[in-house]
Design a protein around this nucleic acid. Structure first.
Lengths: 123, 123
DNA sequence: CTTGTGACTTGCACTCTGCAAGTTACTTGG
DNA sequence: CCAAGTAACTTGCAGAGTGCAAGTCACAAG
């Protein structure tokens, strides 16, 4: 059972409710990797933020439960999976881009994200 | 000492670094209230999400430490404070708007935010 | 038949969150 | 003058989330 369970929303506010799904320190980082083309468990682990294996497994399960990603087996023996964004997950691209624009302006120690990332559409 | 201390960033990624400041379940909710004109402790407490007093005090201190808000005494005896957005805090308006647009499309149980909120500029 | 790899799971310590209650410094009503 | 009220917190404690290390399972390669 994932630690990051789905809770009842605290209110009908779109901000408060969205944060129940993505308001933690890892979900949007995994989403960024997915947007950048990563699909497999080991690829997420290799990102510079060094997510740990238990949290990654937990977050992937929660994101799947929330309909942000789909998990499919790309081979049966031994079982191997890949993870892909759903339309709902891809719909968060503008949120990530807005965060990047903010960081670019107010957190000068950050990288500037690649043009290709900032030019993505949400569909 | 606030529980939500400032950690060393996990990487230079603008998304990962931003999430160290706003990647929790309350900071952006408080920010929403500030954008909507709330300024005082008791006003934040009265929001429908029912933040508790210890978390509110902790988050306000962290947001001040991160430069998202400024705390000023509006009267000395007894001491009473109000909290206002800095330019850095107000710069997150597009992030909240992007979250609202996403929720409007993919979380149908949510309210539609007021026009006035969606029309705000970030400056 | 030993080693390696991908995808996890388990255990433990520590931090964060939620709830209830208490505190401080006044202001107001009787 | 005294009791009650209010704003802005603080404290204590239980439970959920996070970080780190190690272990598991099913194969594949040498």
């Amino acid at each position: 059972m994932p630690a990051a369970a789905t809770r009842a929303p605290r209110s009908g506010c779109p901000i408060a409710t969205s944060l129940e799904l993505v308001g933690d320190r890892w979900t949007l980082v995994i989403l960024r990797d997915l947007i950048c083309g990563k699909r497999r468990y080991g690829e997420f682990l290799s990102s510079p933020e060094r997510i740990t294996t238990n949290i990654l497994a937990d977050r992937l399960a929660a994101m799947e439960a929330h309909g942000l990603i789909e998990k499919t087996a790309y081979q049966a023996h031994p079982p191997r999976y890949d993870y892909r964004l759903t339309a709902k997950g891809r719909g968060l691209v503008p949120v990530l881009q807005a965060l990047c624009r903010w960081a670019d302006r107010f957190l000068p120690e950050c990288w500037t994200p690649p043009e290709s990332f900032m030019a993505l559409g949400a569909d």
